[in-house]
């Protein structure tokens, strides 16, 4: 972070003033250790608050709920029986919507390892979005049935810009990674990255981009993708 040092920004004095003021109001007359313990315990336990009953479904019902919720916010959803069928599901989608037979994706083994030989006419690029890509392809880290929300994480193999810059976004979701509630996704994040640690970016995505800024009229494709297509790999 050399440039931060170059700009010589030091807000320690303000920090001390603000935190001391908070402390004077909040901590005066209270037991210091007890306060510290209360905070530590709350963070360590990270207890679930009330989780709506809606997401408390499993198996086929959970997938059905996810589908219904995602479709309600204008995503399109198809199910395939195995990962082997994904390339053809992609080309079918591109054909149906008159999109170019070219997708850009990251190096996620869940994508690079697909049997692309089945769709020789489909061109593939790898790397982050550059503004010229019409269609991007990502793999979901997890998803939440409650509101039809995809969870995508950034990393060496998963560029974030692919989720936003191209006009059309295709996401592959393994049914095994689908949870009922947001809290299920956080458990998975903790399991993968360790408690208290996060990837740089976690994107929760529910449908394609939209705006209602002009006369409250909902319009899809504001700045992000105009379309979101979800392929669920449901091997049972």
């Amino acid at each position: 972070m050399s440039s931060i040092d170059k700009s010589k920004i030091d807000t320690t004095a303000s920090r001390t003033r603000i935190l001391n003021k908070l402390g004077a109001t909040l901590a005066t007359g209270k037991d210091r250790d007890a306060r510290a313990e209360a905070v530590k315990t709350h963070l360590r336990q990270h207890k679930r608050n009330l989780v709506p009953e809606r997401g408390n479904v499993e198996g086929a019902e959970r997938i059905a709920l996810f589908r219904a919720q995602a479709e309600a916010v204008a995503a399109s959803v198809v199910e395939v029986k195995s990962a082997d069928e994904v390339p053809e599901a992609i080309t079918a989608h591109l054909r149906e919507h008159n999109l170019p037979a070219r997708v850009k994706h990251g190096d996620d083994p869940g994508l690079t390892g697909l049997p692309w030989g089945k769709t020789p006419t489909l061109e593939r690029d790898s790397g982050p979005a550059n503004g010229d890509d019409a269609v991007s392809l990502s793999r979901a880290f997890s998803a939440v049935a409650e509101t039809g929300t995809l969870i995508l994480v950034s990393g060496a193999d998963n560029p974030t810009t692919l989720n936003f810059l191209p006009e059309n976004h295709i996401v592959v979701l393994d049914a095994k990674d689908l949870g009922g509630a947001y809290e299920d996704a956080w458990d998975r994040v903790r399991e993968a990255y360790g408690a208290g640690t996060m990837p740089r970016t976690v994107n929760m995505i529910s449908g394609p981009s939209r705006t209602a800024d002009v006369e409250q009229t909902i319009q899809l494709g504001a700045h992000g993708p105009r379309s979101l297509h979800i392929i669920i790999v449901n091997g049972e």
Binding site: I4, S154, A156, I205, A212
Partner: peptide, 29 residues
Amino acid sequence: ATGQEFSTYTTLSTGARREGDPDGPEEYH
């Protein structure tokens, strides 16, 4: 707010681009 069940994008950002990340900001303030 808008009567949506969930907004389209909820994004959680933690720190700067990680080693090996192909995109994302190099600095996070």
